[in-house]
């Protein structure tokens, strides 16, 4: 917490800005929802397991209901068939929410440039951090979580994000 511009009133009261408090809380308790579909989901399992241990960064409370989560981790290929499901899950998440696209497929479709694969999830939902790799190493996924933490500190705290985003499935 950045307390450099606060005044100490005795030892009992700390004054700071509300933004600082909110982002301090948010950055240390991201609750991910893992939309794991393919190979990248297996690497996410490694990220959550004890060797890489995502809980060191406060993001170990994996939620399996989108309504409990504020970080959507899309790990794996998303097909056109899967796309409406991804959209539905994203819509069910309460604001504020962040999205990580893990791996080449989620970012761009990867080397599946074909009739069945969505060419990047940003056609459907807004993405905050893209992680390269096929699949990315667990360290890269951890780095993306750290990126989100840095990003949310800079952002306005009480605004709905990405209001101007228009996805391919938004009007249907």
């Amino acid at each position: 917490m950045d307390l450099s511009n606060t005044h100490m009133l005795d030892d009992a009261v700390v004054t700071t800005t509300i933004d600082t408090v909110v982002s301090w809380g948010r950055e240390a308790s991201l609750w991910p929802f893992v939309f794991g579909t393919a190979c990248c989901a297996i690497e996410f399992m490694s990220t959550a397991a004890s060797r890489y241990d995502i809980s060191r960064f406060g993001a170990e409370v994996l939620r399996f209901s989108p309504r409990h989560a504020d970080l959507l981790v899309v790990a794996g290929t998303v097909s056109y068939k899967q796309a409406p499901i991804l959209k539905q899950i994203y819509d069910q998440m309460p604001e504020p929410k962040w999205v990580i696209a893990v791996g080449a497929c989620a970012c761009t479709g990867g080397f599946y440039d074909n009739y069945t694969t969505l060419q990047g999830i940003d056609e459907i939902i807004p993405v905050d951090v893209y992680v390269a790799g096929c699949p990315p190493r667990p360290e890269a996924i951890l780095d993306a979580v750290l990126d989100i933490k840095r990003q949310l500190k800079r952002e306005p705290k009480f605004e709905v994000r990405n209001t101007d985003f228009k996805g391919k499935l938004d009007d249907v």
Binding site: Y80, K81, A83, P84, I85, D113, N114, Y115, T116, T117, L118, Q119, K168, L169, V172
Partner: peptide, 18 residues
């Protein structure tokens, strides 16, 4: 039917509902 030879490989089709 995508595996027919006259179906173009990159011709994707969006799905709106399950």
């Amino acid at each position: 039917h995508p595996l027919r030879k006259d179906y173009e490989i990159t011709k994707g089709q969006y799905c709106t509902t399950s």
